[in-house]
């Protein structure tokens, strides 16, 4: 017994070591950096106290990024969860050939970020894009999906969500299958409509999975980088400069690494609080079977 904790720490050690060296230490460095300043080439670092944060507080472009990030993450999560749920529900019907549809629905899981970005870049292309042609076919004017600020954020969010639809459909399908059939039969005997069944049986019993899918989708939304880098580079008019992209731009493009570190640190805090809240509220309402 006396040695149990030693053994436990021993088991924890490898992970701890890697996390310490390659995540915690760099994160700590990055936080230190946020209280410093330097020339654009990383020379002559000096302490500036809260200067970076004071500047941030007054930087409207930073706050725009924060706002865009929340918008982006929420759109990604909504799309991903709604379409994933729709797909999962459709796959519940045991019609012949459903296997083929299952394969198609799950398929985007196999598509990497870069390939997804290229596919969507072409799909939404201002000249050759298929979407504009379909829209013109319906008699509507073509849109600059990636070139106008109104659309760009939603376009990139759609590309991001699309890539993850397979993933969330897989999870939600399994979640649906785990719901005992007897409950549905009982509901049918009671004469419940399909909406009532969905609302009172499916959703509550699905909520743990749904919760997991939502958290993953939000994290995906908050940390999406590759799609933005490949599709819009933060543009047009900074319409897709979400915070992680702003950190990247400020650190590596605008040569303000310490300022970027402050942006990162602040948003890290905000995210931390958000997640704590999420766990707290959702955790209480989620039904655990």
């Amino acid at each position: 017994m006396g040695l149990e904790w030693l053994e436990g720490y021993g088991l924890f050690l490898p992970a701890a070591l890697f996390l310490l060296v390659f995540t915690l230490w760099p994160a700590f460095q990055a936080i230190l950096l946020s209280f410093q300043s330097e020339d654009p080439f990383g020379r002559g670092r000096f302490w500036v106290g809260l200067d970076n944060f004071t500047e941030l507080a007054h930087d409207p472009r930073f706050w725009t990024s924060v706002w865009l990030t929340f918008k982006f993450a929420i759109v990604v999560a909504l799309l991903e969860v709604a379409l994933g749920l729709l797909g999962a529900v459709l796959l519940q019907y045991p019609v012949p050939g459903i296997g083929l549809f299952r394969t198609i629905f799950f398929m985007t899981t196999a598509v990497s970020t870069a390939v997804a970005a290229v596919a969507w870049g072409w799909f939404l292309h201002p000249v050759g894009g298929l979407l504009n042609r379909l829209i013109e076919g319906l008699g509507l004017p073509p849109q600059g999906w990636l070139t106008t600020p109104e659309w760009a954020l939603y376009s990139v969010a759609a590309a991001t969500a699309w890539q993850a639809i397979g993933f969330s459909t897989i999870l939600l399908t399994a979640g649906l299958q785990d719901i005992p059939q007897e409950l549905y039969e009982a509901a049918r005997i009671d004469g419940a409509s399909s909406w009532v069944t969905f609302r009172h049986i499916t959703l509550p019993l699905l909520s743990p999975v749904l919760f997991f899918v939502i958290v993953l989708a939000l994290v995906r939304g908050f940390t999406a980088f590759g799609q933005i880098h490949l599709l819009t580079r933060g543009g047009p008019s900074e319409a897709t400069t979400v915070w992680i992209y702003r950190v990247y731009l400020d650190a590596f493009f605008n040569l303000r690494f310490t300022y970027a570190a402050a942006e990162g640190a602040l948003l890290f805090l905000i995210l931390l609080m958000l997640t704590a809240l999420q766990f707290y509220f959702l955790g209480r309402r989620v039904h655990y079977a």
Binding site: H125, P126, V127, G144, T147, R233, P236
Partner: peptide
């Protein structure tokens, strides 16, 4: 107008 890429 094709956005930012001259390639387009």
């Amino acid at each position: 107008y094709v956005g930012r890429r001259t390639a387009d």
